[in-house]
Design a protein around this nucleic acid. Structure first.
Length: 427
RNA sequence: GGAGAGAUGGCUGAGUGGUCGAAAGCGCUCCCCUGCUAAGGGAGUAAGGGUUGAUAGCCCUUCGAGGGUUCGAAUCCCUCUCUCUCCGCCA
C-alpha cells in the first residue's frame, strides 16, 4: 500500500509514477472520496467527543445523587446521529481502502522504461553456454528416456501441469534444495524457517496477492477458506505482521523451502510441455526485513545470494532488471535471474528478487523501533527466489547432459547424493 | 471428538458498568546521588488514526475478533477464533 498521506498530498506525482507501469490512477475520484472522508471523520469524531463528555457528566451527576433525567434527554438524539455518521464513514473508508489496496507500488527511479519483458535490460552475465558436440536435448526428453520423469502418471493423477519424478532425479531435486538451504543459512546469514503452506486471506492481502490476484491462487472449499501459498514469501513475510521488531535484530534474514501452488490462469498455451510451468513446484525463498533506507543495498545483496547458488552449480546465467511495465504489482524494483537452458537455447527465469520498500509492511503493520526517535517505523521487506528448485533441476539436467542421455551431477551436489557422480538409466 | 480454564500494554499481572488507555512489578530511557564489575532516589515509557506548517497542542479508536445492551463497557449478553489442562484419537 502506498502511504495514504502521500496519496492525498501528491496524488499527481503518484499517478505519473504509476503511469510508468501503464497503470491509470484516477486521482480525481480518489481525492473526491478523500474529501468526503475528511469531512465525515471530523464530524464523527466531534460527535464521539460530545458523547464521551456527556457520558462523563452523567456519571458524575449520578455519583452526586442528582437527577440525571434532564441530562439523558439532552443526549437522546446524539446516539442515532452518531450511528449514522459512523456507518457512512466506515463505508467511505472501505471504499478508499479498496482503491488503496488496488494500487501497485511506486517504482524506483532507476527502473528502466518499457512495457513488456522484451524491454528488460541485462545488468550482468556469468558463465558461457557450453558447446555440446551433439544436439542438446531438453529436460523432457532426458528425463523420460532415463525413466525418471513421468508426465503420464502425473496427468493420470492430477491432470496437466504436474510432474512425477523417480529415483535419482527425485533425489537430485532434494539435493538441490538441501544445498541451497545450507548455503544460505551457513554462508549468507539466513535463518531457516518452516511455515504453513495453507494461509488465510489476510496473509495474502498483507503481501499483495489479494485482493487483486485471487484467480492465480488455489483456494480450499472449507468454511473459512484457506489458500495454498503461491510462494513462501507469503507466510514468511507475514512473520513480521502486526509486530514491532527490535532494531538490534535487523536485518532479519529468513530462508524457507516450500512447495508453491499456482493456478496459472491466463497462461494457457505457455510452456505446456515439461516442468517449466507447473501448478506445484519447489522453491527456496529468501526474505529480508531491513530498516527504511537500507533496502536498496539489501536488494543487491539478496540478488547476489541467489546468484551464488548458480555459480556454485556452474550454471550460466544473466541478471536483468525488469522494466517499468514488467515489474510486479507490489515491487518497487525487481531483478530476475535467468539461467541458460540448452534444450531451449534460451535464458529462462529461475529467480526473481524484489524490493517492496514499505508497501507490504504498511499492509501488514510490520514495524521496527527507530532507536533515534523511539517510535515504530515501517520495515522494508524484500524477497527473492534462492532459487526455484524445479527450474534449477531442469537447468542441471540440460547443462550437464552427456551424449548418451546420462546426466553428470554437479560436484557441489554430490555429497547430497551419497557420492553419486552420474545419473544414468537405472541409477 | 468430550470436559474445564483462559485471552489486558515489551513481559508478568490487577481490574467485573462511570475521569480505566488501564494498578503494581519487571524491562527500557533520561536525570540525580554514589565513584566503581553493586545499590539507592526522581521522572518518563502502548499502538493506530484525525486535525495542523508541526515528531506542539487538541481529539478519536483500540483491553483476542465481530455483533448487541447502555447516556456510558476491559467489565453485562451473543457468536466466532485462538491458547492451556485433562480424557479420547492420531502421523
Amino acid at each position: 500500500m502506498i502511504d495514504p498521506k502521500l496519496l492525498r498530498q501528491s496524488a499527481d506525482d503518484v499517478a505519473s509514477n504509476l503511469a510508468r507501469r501503464g497503470f491509470e490512477f484516477d486521482t480525481g475520484a480518489y481525492l473526491a472520496l478523500e474529501e468526503r472522508r475528511k469531512g465525515l471523520q471530523v464530524e464523527t469524531e466531534k460527535l464521539q467527543s460530545e458523547r464521551n463528555a456527556s457520558a462523563r457528566n452523567i456519571g458524575k451527576a449520578k455519583a452526586r445523587g442528582e437527577d440525571i433525567e434532564p441530562l439523558l434527554a439532552a443526549v437522546k438524539d446524539l446516539g442515532d446521529k452518531l450511528d449514522g455518521n459512523e456507518a457512512e464513514l466506515a463505508k467511505v473508508r472501505s471504499e478508499l481502502r479498496d482503491i488503496e489496496l488496488g494500487l501497485p507500488n511506486l517504482l524506483a527511479d532507476d527502473v528502466p522504461a518499457g512495457t513488456t519483458e522484451d524491454d528488460n535490460t541485462q545488468v550482468r552475465r556469468w558463465g558461457e553456454p557450453a558447446e555440446f558436440g551433439f544436439e542438446a536435448r531438453d529436460h523432457i526428453e532426458l528425463g523420460e528416456s532415463l525413466g525418471m520423469l513421468d508426465f503420464e502418471s502425473a496427468s493420470r493423477i492430477s491432470g496437466a501441469r504436474f510432474t512425477v519424478m523417480r529415483g535419482s532425479l527425485a533425489r537430485l531435486q532434494r539435493a538441490l534444495i538441501q544445498f541451497m538451504l545450507d548455503t544460505h543459512t551457513s554462508e549468507h546469514g539466513y535463518e531457516e524457517t518452516y511455515v504453513p503452506y495453507l494461509v488465510q486471506s489476510q496473509a495474502l492481502v498483507g503481501t499483495g496477492q489479494l485482493p487483486k490476484f485471487e484467480e492465480d491462487l488455489f483456494k480450499t472449499a472449507s468454511e473459512t477458506p484457506f489458500y495454498l501459498i503461491p510462494t513462501a514469501e507469503v507466510p514468511v513475510t507475514n512473520l513480521a505482521r502486526d509486530s514491532i521488531l527490535d532494531y538490534s535484530d535487523l536485518p532479519v534474514r529468513y530462508v524457507a523451502h516450500t512447495p508453491c501452488f499456482r493456478s496459472e490462469a491466463g497462461s494457457h498455451g505457455q510452456d505446456t510441455r515439461g516442468m517449466i510451468r507447473q501448478h506445484q513446484f519447489e522453491k527456496v525463498e529468501l526474505v529480508q526485513f531491513v530498516e527504511a533506507g537500507k533496502s536498496d543495498a539489501a536488494l543487491d545483496e539478496l540478488t547476489g545470494h541467489a546468484e551464488v547458488v548458480l555459480r556454485r552449480l556452474e550454471l550460466p546465467y544473466r541478471t536483468v532488471i525488469l522494466c517499468s511495465g514488467d515489474t510486479g504489482f507490489g515491487s518497487t524494483k525487481t531483478y530476475d535471474i535467468e539461467v541458460w537452458l540448452p534444450g531451449q537455447q534460451k535464458y529462462r527465469e529461475i529467480s526473481s528478487c524484489s524490493n517492496y520498500n514499505d508497501y507490504q509492511a504498511r499492509r501488514m503493520q510490520a514495524r521496527y523501533r527507530n532507536p533515534q526517535t523511539g517510535k515504530p517505523e515501517l520495515l522494508h521487506t524484500l524477497n527473492g527466489s534462492g532459487v526455484a528448485a524445479g527450474r534449477a533441476l531442469i537447468a542441471v539436467m540440460e547443462n550437464y547432459q552427456n551424449e548418451d542421455g546420462s546426466i553428470r551431477i554437479p560436484s557441489v551436489l554430490q555429497p547430497y547424493m551419497g557420492g553419486q557422480e552420474v545419473i544414468s538409466r537405472g541409477s
